[in-house]
Design a protein around this nucleic acid. Structure first.
Lengths: 142, 142
DNA sequence: ACCATATGCATCAAGCTAGAACTATTCAAG
DNA sequence: CTTGAATAGTTCTAGCTTGATGCATATGGT
């Protein structure tokens, strides 16, 4: 049973809408939790992705945004004393982003909040695995 | 085999990152195609979702954004002569967004461009259906 | 060693986005 | 009918995001 190309195109557009919708829902979830900690959604996302010391470029990659945007967000976090820019040990162009003690503590609180009422809670662990596999197939395209 | 809650939380965060990443990829795809038509990504998304006459609220819903944002984007499309705001037949508060002839024509060209090299092309029709079902389960939460 | 090219980050302009505040209109309860 | 609450749309502000540009540093070819 082959699907006509036009119907296929429509289905693909709907799928885009669904992905977009879920992303918006996740972003909303982050935003609502973040404000209770005095953070914006972007700042919270950066904090969430700072799993350890990394370069600005690496963070931008994890945030799925441009490096210039990561610079902007890191500026804010730095002003709040949550992150510091350290010199990179081997590359003098790069900077290592390192959480301060305050940053680590706030990140812990944030992660705790984010696991509550996650938009993905409607799926079983099995379904989440399936979803993850499908998304990885799509995202990892050279 | 039950997963410990902490590992579950980490998996969920990774999943959020993947959803976000795919959404960013789709947004990028739209942006690259849109500029060739003199449109921004947001304008193109609005044009894509204007499948027929609808209210500002409906469009915002389809775009997964706030009505105030839809107003902003429609302003731009209206200035370009692609959309008109007509009075709603039964509700004098609401407005019906209607594509002009130019709008219809440009939308056709846009849809043609968007189906090329879609970020979802890596999945088979079968996988796309599975993905759609999973996303619908997640998005449609009262 | 030298130089062309690429990379990492910052800065800026232009445009997007959410949320609060406001007006006009609708709807429902009395 | 009147009034109070809810809804549709707009405006405004603060903050996010990209892409272009510039500067410093790395890297590879000769």
């Amino acid at each position: 049973m082959t699907t006509p190309p036009q119907a296929q195109a429509i289905a693909e557009r709907e799928l885009c809408g669904l992905v977009n919708g879920l992303a918006a829902q996740i972003s909303d979830h982050v935003r609502r939790r973040a404000v209770t900690l005095g953070l914006t959604a972007a700042q919270a996302t950066a904090l969430r992705e700072l799993t350890g010391p990394m370069t600005t470029r690496d963070l931008a990659e994890r945030m799925s945004c441009e490096p210039s945007n990561a610079t902007f967000v890191i500026d804010k976090l730095e002003k709040q004393g949550l992150v510091e820019r350290h010199p990179h040990p081997t590359d003098r162009r790069a900077k290592l982003l390192v959480l301060t003690d305050d940053g680590v503590a706030l990140r812990e609180r944030l992660l705790g909040l984010l696991t509550q009422e996650s938009p993905l809670a409607g799926l079983t662990a099995e379904q989440q695995r399936t979803l993850q596999e499908l998304l990885e197939k799509t995202v990892a395209r050279p």
